[in-house]
């Protein structure tokens, strides 16, 4: 959901909807609700406090036509777009670290094959490795949904899961 704001640094957390990505710095929080098989990808530069969150839906943007227009939709293009925008804002490529959450497999439907969540996780990991961005933490898989809140300044990714055993995890 897009918010049309007036003042910079308004206290409401910025919502990052499906296929969207957002960049921020400091104590601003970026939030994605109700991730099932979608994957939340958080990148941040601990030195400058610049970071971003993407809410990716599909694994492979390079194979899709519209990934230029919607880089946030695909795990691979979302990571590249986040990284590029962060560097434009002053982040240092070599300092950037990553955390991911989501990618669960809620249903065992025949049409889902090996699992839509797993495919997203694998694609994100492969792209991070290709770009040399270390994956600092992850909370992925399972068969339950998650809501994430990311603070670029501290690199904290809070994951609230609907599974009562897991509750709230701080990555």
């Amino acid at each position: 959901m897009k918010t049309y704001g007036t003042e910079p640094g308004a206290p409401t957390p910025v919502q990052v909807g499906i296929s969207e990505l957002a960049i921020s710095d400091g104590d601003d929080t970026l939030k994605s609700y109700g991730l099932g098989s979608c994957l939340a990808i958080a990148l941040y530069d601990p030195k400058t406090g610049i970071g971003g969150l993407a809410h990716a839906m599909l694994p492979d943007g390079d194979a899709a036509e519209n990934s230029d227009r919607k880089p946030g939709k695909y795990a691979d293009t979302a990571i590249r777009a986040l990284l590029r925008r962060m560097v434009e804002q002053g982040a240092h490529y070599t300092d950037v670290e990553a955390k991911i959450a989501g990618g669960s497999d809620m249903f065992e439907f025949e049409s889902f094959g090996e699992g839509v969540g797993q495919r997203n996780v694998a694609a994100a990991k492969a792209e991070l490795e290709k770009l040399g961005v270390p994956l600092e933490a992850e909370d992925v898989g399972g068969d339950y949904g998650r809501t994430v809140e990311f603070t670029p300044g501290t690199g904290t990714l809070i994951v609230k899961s609907s599974n009562s055993d897991n509750g709230v995890t701080k990555l």
Binding site: L35, G36, D105, M106, E108
Partner: peptide, 17 residues
Amino acid sequence: EFIHDIGAAAVDPVIIQ
């Protein structure tokens, strides 16, 4: 398949597929 979860999380696997 039984669902007891955040509403959006139950729908997103379907739209992904």
